[in-house]
Design a protein around this nucleic acid. Structure first.
Lengths: 333, 333
DNA sequence: CTGAAAGCGCTTACAG
DNA sequence: CTGAAAGCGCTTACAG
């Protein structure tokens, strides 16, 4: 039959609806006996409070909005797992908003989120522009709803907390690794489109190269993943390249494929490193060395931080950088 | 600067709140002049109806629940893109529920979904068990809320509509392809854990092999993706294998890696095929031939079907199979 | 075409 | 510790 309401429970337990409400939300405020009686009836009737009525009356939704650019990126999906796990622990529901739609601007979508009365917003992205940041800040302040950036941060300001990774340092460290192998002509392969996270990796690479008095060389692929033969001939064939760091695993693998066609030995002739440690790094031949990024953790920590904010708990660390590591496999010496 | 309510709009437009409500939801029922006046005020005030009040009063949420087993599977993520795009077109919000949690049983999660008052449920999975199906059917009938299965279906019953792929036929066709190349000793590599979709691929493989009077051979990997040297020695080394069909691209790639270590030439000695056509099929060396699955479309069509159901439109096709295709690359002749 | 009013199912001061 | 009652912000018959 149709759903039981709080009235049904109150009737069956012979108490008022106020008591039922308290038995659920403030158990300590009701006498143990009546509380148990109420709880038993709730069990029997399979009663679940109507989320709308609850949200309307309490002005809290126990729902968070998760805003993502595009689900099909491996990192986004894995972060969602971390988010979902923590959300469940703290009993929050997740409203999912996928940007990158022709039908609606980002602003429209954020307005929609406000109307949905979420308690918090988790903003996942590789980057954030000034207007985007300002808009989020306005939302936060106008509607008093906490926002957390995940996998990105805004360099000039920390009003909106963020959890991310020290990409600059990771870029530095992985370059160092190749440098330590005695390599001197190391390329960084990045993307044409500017992403904040990739720019940071690049900055780290530049720092390491400069420290060693070596000339940095950056190549930018236009496609999403592929290094093709033309690229290879243009950038790598004539140069005495002995190291390649790609901003994504897939770019590294793609590079290896053309390199093999051109009889390059990896890692002997060229050392190759990727970023992220996707499961495909292990499927590459040879297995790819790369920076290991704690993607799941980023989602989990971001969500946890948001729960603290929603709960008005004290948050000391507003800009969290999660530790990464470097996984050495077969594409480095 | 708290949010404007319907009262604020009514006041500013000098009408009753009923008229405001109509201007939004049944514009044809209000005189053009007043409608425009109301709409202008709404614009000025940046008014957005409170989703809770609306949901409570109208008993509709314009929200659907999407239930997934694990976000990090590439197919799930890509389906979410299709779902999100169509959801946006029809103005539905998405509540995301990730199963596979120790903290809550699937039943608990479904109860939670009911409490959230969603208008429909999209159930994404590789398979569905009898108890799961029965439970979904109960929900559908008890609460009158439409459910659509995506990427799976229930063989014995079509009460719950589904959109999926003819995996059996795909398995048959890809086996045929290898058979047509003159290969006779074709292995199917599946998973130890039984998944409905994999069993169907296997059934198609068996049919093709039997038709040709050839002996079918199935190997099951225990790990999630890897074929290791032991597997290779046990199954492939002594046998005169000349074809391998893997139920996932990653398994096919993993097989290729050990095969190369053992000096097998692909596709000359062994033809290899995968399933799904992930972007990693193109990153494999040699590039992997495989069945191409319309993953995005499955999400989109599933969501579209759900909107029809929620709208009480007539639905003739309750069991939809989307067309797949076969992409031939370098691991077949 | 428009308004007054009841009602959706909860929470939460306020009394007692 | 418990109950009566107001109120959250909408929708929707029902009159007019």
């Amino acid at each position: 039959m149709s759903k039981a309401t709080i009235y049904d429970v109150a009737g069956a337990a012979r108490v008022s609806l106020a008591t039922v409400s308290r038995a659920i939300n403030n158990p300590e405020k009701v006498k143990p006996e009546t509380r148990e009686r109420v709880l038993r009836v709730i069990e029997e009737l399979g009663y679940k409070p109507n989320a709308f009525a609850k949200g309307l009356a309490s002005r809290k939704s126990t729902t968070v909005a998760v805003v993502v650019p595009d689900m099909s990126r491996a990192s986004i999906a894995e972060m969602m797992n971390g988010i979902a796990d923590i959300a469940r622990v703290y009993k929050y529901s997740i409203l999912l908003y996928v940007l990158e739609s022709e039908d609606a601007s980002e602003e429209d979508i954020l307005r929609e989120i406000i109307a949905a009365q979420v308690d918090g917003i988790l903003y996942l992205n590789d980057e954030i522009t000034s207007p985007q940041y300002e808009f989020l800040r306005t939302i936060k302040n106008t509607y008093q709803i906490p926002v957390v950036l995940t996998n990105t941060f805004y360099p000039e300001d920390d009003e909106i907390p963020s959890v991310s990774i020290d990409y600059e340092r990771a870029g530095y460290e992985i370059t160092k690794k190749l440098l330590d192998e005695g390599r001197k002509h190391i390329y960084m392969v990045s993307t044409v489109r500017k992403y904040m996270v990739n720019d940071l990796k690049e900055a780290g690479y530049l720092r390491a190269m400069n420290e060693s008095g070596l000339e940095p060389k950056v190549m930018r692929t236009s496609g999403r993943i592929s290094i093709n033969t033309e690229h290879f001939n243009e950038y790598f064939k004539d140069n005495k390249v002995d190291g390649v760091i790609a901003v994504r695993d897939s770019i590294a693998i793609s590079f290896m494929n053309v390199a093999f066609e051109n009889d390059v030995r990896i890692p002997e002739d060229i050392g190759v490193c990727g970023f992220q440690n996707t499961k495909y790094a292990r499927l590459a031949r040879p297995q790819l060395s790369c920076v290991d990024l704690p993607i799941y953790d980023m989602g989990a920590v971001g969500m946890r931080l948001l729960t603290k904010l929603m709960n008005k708990e004290e948050v000391t660390d507003r800009v969290i950088k999660l530790p990464h590591s470097i996984v050495l496999r077969k594409t480095t010496l």
